[in-house]
Simulated assay, not measured.
Amino acid sequence: MKDGATPIDNGGTQAVARALSLLSLVGRGGAQGLGLAQIAAASGLARPTARRLLLALGTARMVEQDRATRRYHLGPETYLLAGFATERHGILHHARDAMARLARDTGDTVLLTVTQDDHTLCLERIEGDFPVRTHALMRGDRKPAGVGAGALAILAALPVAEADALLARVAPLVGDLMPGLLDDLGRARVQGHALNPGRVVPGSWGLGVAIPWPDGRPAGALSIAAVEHRMTPARQADLAAALHREAQAIAARLATLERNTA
């Protein structure tokens, strides 16, 4: 070892990596939380090891255990840290004004979708004032990649090989929707926006546009959901133009963040 070099603590590094992996698992457990057996199975760790790491995370207030159900949830410290990071990294922070404008101007429901492993997550839903609404996608809903207009827009923005591999992984979850999804994906790549013509819920249509990072990869997607009769071809063109305009405004804000961190 060279003079002044710091020895590598492989054991400590491994423990940190495992603890962070468990923290991510707990976060993905959602409002219902996860039991110790679920966490151990998903992480591949022995239950005593998982429990020891969860206790350490609990001491740091990063996770907490419900006394009644014994299930683990994210702790208060994660909430505080997320709040500190929101302005710098939170796409919802930078998209909310755009979503509100779209909902006001169109009268329809506006959704913000982001990727989560091989799925997509609806981060936010803002409703317009049109009295007839679609409820096919609600805030917090998680769908397989490509299912829904926002998810389809994200998929269409990925390199073809990457998108194909992703679709192959989620094929068992998509099931009978796959042939229609592939047709919609081909059109989305050509048109620059995605259309879901009632594939998930009949009569509930959606139109989505990806929000790009400076390198072109999708940071998420904006979409508009409406009942079928409000998605005429002429109106689709107007909605797509509005979505592109707001998506580019959000992308410009994200690009500023990246320049400031470079």
Rank of each mutant, 00 (worst) to 15 (best):
Val201Ile: 06
Ala219Gly: 05
Tyr79Leu: 12
Leu173Pro: 03
Tyr79Asn: 08
Pro159Gln: 08
Ala240Met: 15
Ser24Cys: 13
His119Ile: 10
Gly208Trp: 06
Ala68Trp: 09
Ala237His: 12
Glu258Asp: 00
Ala247Asp: 13
Arg71Tyr: 15
Gly11Ser: 06
His244Cys: 15
Thr49Ala: 12
Gly206Ala: 04
Thr86Val: 01
Leu239His: 01
Asp97Thr: 13
Thr6Cys: 13
Lys143Val: 05
Gly208Ala: 01
Glu228Arg: 05
Gln248Pro: 13
Met178Cys: 12
Ala252Met: 02
Arg88Val: 00
Ser223Gly: 04
Pro7Trp: 09
Pro202Trp: 09
Asn260Lys: 00
Asp238Trp: 13
Thr13Ala: 07
Asp215Trp: 04
Glu228Trp: 08
Gly75Arg: 04
Ala168Pro: 12
His73Asn: 05
Ala225Tyr: 03
Ala42Gly: 04
Ala157Ser: 09
Leu111Trp: 05
Ala237Leu: 14
Ala95Phe: 03
Leu81Ser: 00
Ala242Thr: 09
Leu25Arg: 08
Thr113Met: 10
Ala221Trp: 10
Gly203Leu: 12
Leu182Glu: 12
Val170Thr: 02
Gln191His: 09
Ala50Gly: 08
Pro172Cys: 10
Met99Ala: 03
Ala5Lys: 13
Leu239Lys: 02
Trp213Leu: 11
Gln248Gly: 14
Ala153Tyr: 04
Thr78Tyr: 04
Thr134Cys: 10
Arg199Gln: 08
His93Thr: 01
Leu158Val: 05
Asp97Tyr: 05
Ala145Asn: 04
Ala41Arg: 13
Asp184Ser: 09
Arg142Met: 03
Glu127Asp: 13
Arg253Trp: 04
Gly186Val: 14
Leu181Trp: 07
Leu36Thr: 11
Gly192Phe: 09
Ala251Cys: 00
His73Pro: 01
Pro214Thr: 11
Val170Met: 01
Gly128Trp: 02
Arg104Leu: 14
Ala225Gly: 10
Ala85Asn: 01
Ser223Val: 07
Gly12Tyr: 06
Trp205Lys: 09
Gly90Arg: 03
Leu23Asp: 12
Leu182Ser: 10
Leu45Asn: 08
Val147Phe: 06
Thr261Gly: 00
Asp3Leu: 15
Leu112Trp: 02
Lys143Arg: 09
Gly128Val: 03
Arg142Phe: 00
Ile154Thr: 06
Gln14Val: 15
Gly11Pro: 06
Leu54Arg: 03
His244Ser: 10
Arg101Ala: 05
Arg96Val: 11
Leu181Arg: 03
Val110Tyr: 02
Leu166Met: 08
His94Thr: 00
Leu54Ser: 00
Met62Val: 06
Leu112His: 00
Ala100Trp: 06
Asp97Arg: 12
Ala234Gly: 09
Ala210Gly: 08
Glu127His: 04
Glu228Thr: 10
Pro218Gly: 05
Gly198Cys: 13
Leu74Gly: 02
Arg47Asp: 15
Arg28Phe: 15
Ala95Trp: 00
Ala262Tyr: 00
Val26Leu: 05
Val160Gly: 11
Val174Phe: 02
Gly192Glu: 10
Pro179Phe: 11
Gly75Tyr: 07
Arg125Leu: 11
Arg235Lys: 01
Glu124Ile: 03
Glu246Asp: 05
Thr256Ser: 04
Leu185Tyr: 13
Ala42Glu: 03
Thr232Val: 15
Arg253Gln: 06
Gly107Ala: 14
Leu55Arg: 12
Gly192Gln: 09
Gly12Asn: 03
Gly192Asn: 11
Ser24Met: 11
Asp117His: 10
